Computed example of a mutant assay.
Amino acid sequence: MAELVSKTYSEALFEVAKEEQMIDSLQAEFEFLVSSFNDYPEFFEIFKTPKIAFGEKKKIIQEIFGDKISESLLNFIYVILDKKRGADILEIKAAFDQRVDDYKGVAKVTVETVVPLTESQLSEITEKLALKTGKQVVLEAIINKALVGGMVIKMGDQVIDGSVKYKLEGMLEGLTQIIV
């Protein structure tokens, strides 16, 4: 249900952003809003709780963000609050970002390794994934000591697990299946 909600609302905001030719600015404003929730968790609680009336929340949002975000995003926030979907704002933001990336032909990829990769290794991975996907690849490298060795590449719903940990777990599973 939450996925359907985030998809529906993000799609509506994206269409407004596209129509008004303000995709980048709306995305930046939305990021600013969500980062405010991360910086001030108590404020986020006020935003998402059903115990505070819509009118009160609207006043609070207007006072805090009225001169910092566009009228389009402000109205969008009001709709979310009016429909009692404040708790879904983070998922809506993630779905909106994904929609923007798809529109721009960008693929965000994480690469997990035990040791840091060199610039040439990162560049080679980026080039190969760009050729495979036909998209501009934005790579994030993460150090994960639990992998033992190898790497794990995550792109959207796809995971390429070439870690030693994964291979060892597969071997262990195979050994436990042997009937003696």
Rank of each mutant, 00 (worst) to 15 (best):
F47H: 01
P50H: 10
I179T: 13
T113K: 01
F43T: 00
K167F: 11
I143Y: 08
S72T: 12
V106E: 02
D102A: 06
E56K: 15
L139C: 14
L172H: 00
E56H: 14
F37M: 09
S10G: 04
V16M: 06
F54I: 15
F54R: 08
V16C: 04
V138T: 14
L122F: 06
P50L: 08
K128R: 09
M151K: 02
L26H: 05
K135Q: 01
K93D: 00
T113D: 07
D97C: 10
K59V: 04
Q136E: 14
Q21M: 12
A17M: 00
L168V: 11
I23G: 05
V79W: 05
M1L: 15
Q177E: 04
A130H: 14
E112G: 04
Y9W: 04
A95C: 03
D24Y: 12
S35D: 04
V111K: 06
A2R: 15
Q121K: 07
D82E: 05
M22D: 00
K68M: 11
A87I: 02
Q98A: 09
S35A: 01
L175S: 00
I153F: 12
A94K: 05
S70T: 09
G150M: 11
E140R: 14
A12M: 09
K135H: 10
I92T: 06
K7V: 03
Q136N: 13
F54K: 08
K165D: 03
L26G: 02
D67V: 10
Y103D: 08
T113H: 07
I142L: 13
V180L: 12
K165N: 02
T8P: 08
R85C: 06
